[in-house]
């Protein structure tokens, strides 16, 4: 063994020594290959982030020009009640979105059963919302949520229940929007879990069946632990997407054809941090304040993702 090692080592060293002269151009090639991506990221992401950070300490005019005002924007952020409300809205939305993950796991497990008829049709149906434009989705749900003429309240009236104005009642609108969010993300998470499920060898289930385990036990003792890397991935993405949520809230709260200055009565209860950023920066022309909001959001997402990566050691099993 040691003879082999002692023989091998000089040879290996010799080989790499032989290659060293060729390394430099090789490394250059490597840099060249990653350059488009690196340059793209720097120009379109890192530089704007740095700029946004700078502008968050300024009062910016609507047509450029800025004055340094220190931390005034951040202090105004604390004083503005709509900021706190929108942070709470966003967090609530994210938590509700996480509830969609067990649902997607269950759905994936059901759709992964062998011998299930029309499997691909079910998969297609659940995946459709993912590839549909959020604008179209929002339009459709606004019709269904209509308090007076909507499909949902029509169905509820059959059983004698008078449903609320789902999309414009401040006390239910955020739940209603979050439900659409779950529905939209369900198909995407399901596909991730289906892929994960196909990586679990069937022999575990066969062995468990011989040992007398039922379907529920198999699901919680085999499927869930072995699927945990996929679940972790989906969780991280869901949290990031939820914290950035804009399009759905915007479409559900805006009134097409309405003049400036009209608002859905539920807007304060549904407005997310991204929505607030858009409103402050692009509608009210307060770019400095908008930049501060954007930066708080960035910090928030970083912190959440970091916490999740810390926590994963406790529950994610990499087989």
């Amino acid at each position: 063994m040691s003879a082999v090692n002692s023989l091998a080592r000089p040879r290996r060293a010799g080989r790499s020594a032989n290659r060293r002269p060729g390394r430099r151009p090789e490394r250059m090639w490597a840099y060249l290959m990653v350059a488009p991506m690196t340059i793209g990221l720097s120009v379109f992401y890192l530089w704007p982030i740095a700029q946004t950070f700078f502008y968050s300490f300024t009062k910016s005019g609507p047509f450029g020009g800025h004055a340094w005002i220190g931390t005034a924007n951040y202090r105004a952020l604390v004083d503005e009640p709509s900021v706190l409300q929108s942070v709470a809205n966003t967090l609530f939305y994210a938590v509700v979105q996480l509830a969609g993950i067990p649902l997607a796991v269950l759905l994936a497990a059901l759709l992964n059963q062998r011998g299930l008829r029309g499997r691909s049709i079910y998969r297609l149906v659940y995946f459709l919302p993912v590839v549909t434009m959020p604008v179209a989705v929002a339009m459709l749900w606004r019709w269904m949520y209509n308090g007076d003429y909507g499909l949902i309240n029509q169905l509820l009236s059959i059983v004698g229940v008078r449903g609320p104005h789902w999309a414009s009642d401040p006390s239910v609108a955020l739940y209603a929007v979050a439900a659409i969010g779950i529905w939209m993300a369900l198909g995407y998470n399901m596909v991730i879990f289906l892929a994960g499920l196909q990586g679990i060898p069937t022999m575990y289930y066969e062995a468990a069946a011989i040992d007398g385990a039922g379907p529920a036990k198999m699901f919680f003792r085999i499927t869930v632990p072995l699927l945990s890397p996929s679940i972790f991935f989906a969780t991280v993405l869901t949290v990031i997407n939820s914290l950035q949520m804009f399009d759905l809230a915007y479409m559900m709260m805006s009134t097409p054809g309405a003049a400036a200055g009209t608002a859905n009565p539920a807007l304060p209860q549904v407005r997310t941090v991204s929505y607030l950023f858009y409103q402050k920066a692009f509608v009210e022309h307060d770019l400095g304040f908008g930049a501060a909001v954007a930066f708080v959001l960035l910090g928030f997402i970083l912190a959440m993702t970091l916490i999740q990566f810390r926590l994963q050691r406790r529950w994610v099993h990499y087989a």
């Binding site: 209509n146 308090g147 007076d148 909507g150 104005h165 414009s168 009134t255 097409p256 054809g257 009565p265």
Partner: peptide, 13 residues
């Protein structure tokens, strides 16, 4: 008049 919620769900026009 109908409620503000009704007039939000369906545009007054």
């Amino acid at each position: 008049s109908p409620s503000v919620k009704s007039m939000t769900d369906t545009y007054p026009a």
